[in-house]
């Protein structure tokens, strides 16, 4: 590995691991455009050192036979990953489906800031929570559209009765 001190440094940890998993996942699933719009005013991009510039590669997607059985390889998907270090010394990581390097860079920067006690909670409120709401709205919209197509089939009795 080109950047050795990758394991979390002994910075004071200001967050729960669950929280970090959640914000990283939310930023990955959200649109890059919205992520930028929400966070542009909260971030000074000069304050980060690039540890691993955004790079595009593949993730092999696994699935299970019959949905629940042994694994097999379904195919690959594109992924962009990035690592930065904030001035406070936090390492920010991102792993984002697709090939949007700007999205990956911003997500990594925010991941670093979210780990700090200074501006973590502001970003949580003004970015992560809004992104989550948007994801939820999209999901509800889809569910609503889908539920209009719910059917009940009736079986007709054949022959004489």
């Amino acid at each position: 590995m080109e950047h050795t001190p990758l394991k979390e440094r002994s910075n004071t940890v200001n967050y729960q691991l669950n929280d970090r998993q959640r914000w990283m996942s939310v930023m990955a699933k959200s649109s890059g455009e919205l992520l930028h719009n929400l966070s542009d005013s909260l971030i000074d991009t000069a304050q980060f050192e690039t540890i691993r510039a955004p790079e595009v590669g593949l993730t092999q997607v696994r699935a299970r036979m019959g949905g629940t059985g042994s694994q097999f390889n379904l195919g690959d998907m594109t992924i962009t990953r990035c690592v930065v270090r904030s001035i406070a010394g936090h390492y920010g990581y991102s792993y984002i489906a697709g090939r949007n390097k700007a999205h990956a860079l911003r997500a990594a920067e925010l991941d670093a800031l979210l780990q700090s006690s200074n501006n973590g909670s502001t970003i949580r409120q003004q970015v992560i929570e809004l992104l989550e709401e948007q994801l939820m709205r999209e999901q509800q919209q889809k569910t609503a559209e889908t539920s209009t197509t719910k059917v009940n089939f009736f079986t007709l009795v054949r022959g004489e009765d």
Partner: peptide, 16 residues
Amino acid sequence: LSRFYTSEPINTTQMQ
């Protein structure tokens, strides 16, 4: 492209 990772098996039971 190089392959960086292998995913955990997708869970189609939890599908939206």
